[in-house]
Design a protein around this nucleic acid. Structure first.
Lengths: 251, 251
DNA sequence: CGAATATTTGACGCGCATCAAATGTGGTGG
DNA sequence: CCACCACATTTGATGCGCGTCAAATATTCG
């Protein structure tokens, strides 16, 4: 259930980070890079379906997604599941738990993932010695909050069709901004059950709602995945402006 | 629409902060208190219904609630409203906007409020010179995220009755933890429209749902307000464990 | 006292949940 | 390589939860 301890061999040393040059991430000083490089104590590779963090646990690590897709969720005692947000490369995982002591949600991989592993203990040193990075951590927390705000608006006040359109457009934009698609087809590796648990709908109604988007040729549904065909239509249905494209920090 | 500029007369200097001694807030060093005191450039008193911050604006200030109730919300273009969370004394307002540049939600007072006013510009100095306070800011952002996670779970996966019970228990616990009730009766100053916009329900159905809680003698409904009679029952209906009662920072 | 805001209630219908079952589709072991 | 199983998608039937419409009562405030 809990992932194996991080190996200390770094296949992707921070100096050769494949994400950092992408242009969506802010520039870092060499002092900052040096710190992050020491802060990173390992890498973790996990399979689809593996659990990164479990609600109720007290984790000694936090992570940055280096590749792949994941999602954060909470469960009710009777098993009902709510997906809170998705994880794409560049996202921090487990900051909440590192600060407040206990994870209040779980994180699971939607595809094979690579994670950079950081030691919670060194967070204090980060705050003491690198105010710019400390600012970044708060920035990342604030951005996560913004995404949650929008998701809450969606689940609370948008219709099923609007919600589905919003979700898919949202994931599409996030994936594209970190070039998660590569050159193959642009596929989001989720099942309709994931969509249902994100939108607060049943899986049956989710299927019928997605069919409408398929009929309008806004998306195509593959096995275990979704391909966006017409982003404009999706944003239009959801009455959503899209994500801003400001540069962001990368831990 | 935008509040008037803060007055510089401080009726509640930080050294005599009425909140800080409450015991739910962590202890601060005198250096930290000194900084916060300089960081605070004024106080703002506003009426019920007044808007503190508006979505889309770029604010030069951030605030800490000193007294009263407020709420954060977002609107869809056609006017549908989703309330995201509530503000009670000790809560920070506008951190998101201060970091990312633009407010993505609005904040309105539910009762008369007093706010401490801080200058956004001095945030950098806080990060440079007070790592402990910087850590606190991230902590507060992470806690806001936790509350949003729980609200999203509620709206997405709980039934109408469970949602209503959860919301009222949640607000009750938050209010009590900062002794917002004083010695009079414990009244949460919201209308059923606020409840509806928080839970993602219509106002009619909200009324019928609240009636069930009233019939079970779990709450009493006053004009523009809700009084909790049986917290246990509320938490039981919602299958909710309650808020942790860890001490928290206070900016 | 009149107007605006809140709460309440009933009637009706739609959106979505639930139940049931058929049809892929990929993965695994024999 | 095929049989089989677990999982994912799809579809239809039925019913309930909640939205919408409408209108009657408070209650507050100018």
């Amino acid at each position: 259930m809990t992932p194996a301890p991080a190996s200390s061999a770094k296949k992707y040393p921070c100096e050769k980070c494949p994400l950092r040059p992408l242009g969506v991430f802010r520039d870092f000083t060499s002092a900052e890079l040096g710190f992050i490089s020491r802060f990173k104590t390992g890498e973790l590779t996990i399979d689809r379906g593996a659990t990164v963090l479990v609600e109720g646990n007290h984790s000694a690590h936090l992570y940055t997604a280096l590749s792949g897709w994941g999602f954060r969720y909470k469960l009710l005692p009777d098993g009902r599941r709510q997906i809170l947000n998705y994880v794409v490369p560049g996202d921090l995982i487990g900051l909440q738990g590192s600060l407040t002591g206990e994870m209040q949600h779980s994180v699971e991989a939607l595809s094979p993932m690579m994670l950079c592993v950081f030691e919670r203990e060194q967070l204090f040193s980060l705050y003491r010695n690198h105010p710019g990075l400390a600012y970044d951590l708060t920035w990342l927390a604030a951005r996560e909050e913004q995404m949650l705000d929008e998701n809450l608006l969606s689940v609370g006040r948008r219709s099923a069709l609007e919600r589905a359109a919003y979700l898919i457009a949202f994931l599409h934009q996030r994936a594209r901004s970190v070039q998660l698609y590569g050159k193959g087809k642009a596929e989001i590796p989720i099942t309709q059950q994931h969509v249902a648990d994100t939108l607060g709908l049943s899986i049956v109604h989710t299927n019928k709602t997605l069919r409408k988007l398929i009929d309008r040729k806004a998306i195509r549904w593959l096995d275990r995945g979704c391909e966006v065909l017409d982003e404009e239509t999706l944003c239009g249905i959801a009455r959503w402006e899209g994500l801003g494209d400001q540069r962001r920090p990368l831990m």
